[in-house]
Design a protein around this nucleic acid. Sequence first.
DNA 1: CTAGGGTTAG
Length: 735
Amino acid sequence: MSVPLSSSKQSTVFLLRLCLLKPQTSAIPYYPLHRHLSTEPNPPPQDEESLINEAVQLFQVLEDGNSSSTQLHQLLFSSSSPSSPGIFRQITRRLASSSQALEFFDYIRSNSPSRELTSLSFTFQAIFELASREPDPQNKLLELYRTSKERNIPLTVNGATLLVRCLGRAERVDEALAVVDELDPSLKNTHFYNVVVALLFRSGRIVKALNMLDEMLQPGADCPPNDITGDVVFAALSRREWCGRSISDKEIVGKKMIGLAWDVLHDVMKAGGTLEAASCNALLTGLGRDGDFERMNTLMTEMKEMDIQPNVVTFGILINHMCKSRRVDEALEVFEKMKGVSGLSVEPDVITYNTLIDGLCKVGRQEEGLTLMDQMRSENKCMPNTVTYNCLIDGFCKAGEIERAQELFDQMNKERVFPNVITLNTLVDGMCRHGRITSAVQFFDEMRSKGLKGNAVTFTTLIKAFCNVNNIDKAMELFSQMSKDGCSPDAIVYYTLISGLSQAGRMDDASSVVSMLKEAGFCLDIVCYNVLIGGFCRKNKLDKAYEMLKEMEQAGVKSDSVTYNTLISYLSKTGNFATAHRVMRMMIKDGLVPTVVTYGALIHAYCLNGKIEEAMKIFRDMSSSSKVPPNNVIYNILIDSLCKKNEVELALSLMEEMKAKGVSPNVTTYNAMLKGLRENNLLEKAFDLMDRMVEQACNPDYITMEVLTEWLPAVGETGKLKNFVQGYEVSVSTA
DNA sequence: CTAGGGTTAG
């Protein structure tokens, strides 16, 4: 039964479909729109049928030079000929080829100049249809499209649809979009929009696709979305990798998608449609991705009100997002609740457990994670899998308990839970981070011999580790090894290596890696440019740094505040203050705001150049304008410089100011201050600071200890030094 | 549900 629905109902159908993860039969009758969109006209009545056949035959012989033109003319254009509106289109459809059809079209036009435009449009559509079934349809259609424009024949919606679909298939998206713009907006129908939106999503033009969808949803528009539209949007929504977009774009688009889905779901609710947990789960996932806890909560409440049973996935989403925001105890509460509250219990599955175990490990509660693994076995006969072990191994690695991690690795092997590349990478990373690079490489080799190969992540981890210990040669060796191992480097591998080389001052090597990166088809991003600019500056190669800036401009990569700060820091450190200030003005002109780092760079450089008054001036400036309040790095620079200039009183007053403004001192602050106090033998002040350090649990470092052990015993204050050290031992034992 | 990346002032 096909009952025409009001447009609001039709959009409900769309909304409902949009919200369902799996297609389901809708409770609301669905009007088969496609029947109205079909390009097949109704079969002609019998008398017309014979007229059409006759005309087709006459036209074909006319081509051969016969003089049947009068006959044809009479058949088609005499006052007695029963020309129904679609008659020419019918004839055109039956001609042998699109080129013949075009001739026929011109024939009618020259014989019936008063022919109305719509009729001609439909006839031309028939030519498009013929061409689309012939060889090389894309070029033929484009050619015909040009012809139609030359002859001033407007497109029909189906003609346009055909063109868009055909061009889209040939990935000639821009040409397809030109067709879209060409079509009379009032002709656009649902089918047309569906084809266009699908094409836009497919070609990654998400924003444009969403705008199109908005057009469809406009109250006045006569093209309500149907289930196909829903399918198209859903396919796009679940496709996570929207390649080639920047993060901010992704966010905007994601928000718009979520917003659409949110409205959709609520329209369904208002319309009294039936919803399943799966629909809500899809939306919850999106909201979670957005970090929108508020609306997640609202939705959960609404689910309850509407008697929609949450399932294990629903709880999984909630638990996951609580864990991800480090609210593990709340996650555990939800976990307990799902198991047995108000009669309807939902059994946790291995994913639920893994999520929680990971959450616990990520906040350093890996022992509890281990307990939970035991619990899943015993309480739920739910066996741990590779992911379970990976989470726990990572937890113990991050805690520096590499042996425990290795024990878990052995245990999983014994239980025949097979390690995968993530297990490998997790252990390799853990070893590297805790100074066991050699073991990491050994383990990597061992696994490879057993058939577990590494991937780009493994190599990134090792390359970074070797760069960190300044073993650049080994890092480069690994980089060349990876291609030999049949593992192609991704952008992250290149970035890591470029950064390591730049940090090590090996700018020639860094440049050659940049060339390789480009050869591999990757691009430098802003961070990578900043890394390189910083590297060139440190090597005093300002010309190279400027080359990078030029290249950035050509590549359309905008400088950010880090870029400017890097330059300002270099310029001012080399005494080039005038240029530094000029660059700062450029920065502002460029729409960027000087940050605390910008001021820090200038202040530091003024201090280094002995211009402490200039430094103080900037410092007072930033304090008063207070848009950029000084942080402890700024104070540390000044305190250190003042102490070195023997202006200890001034330094002490800055420390008081820090206290008043709630900027916490750190070990660097205390070290600078204590050195200054030692120079002036201001013992009482030093004791005061030492007490403050203990109070604030600010751990002394080797510099602190050096200063104090050289100073206090020499002035007979060994007791104070002992107390100071003990203060930390006490706080360690109470912790 | 699990693994890897880089930058600027002390």
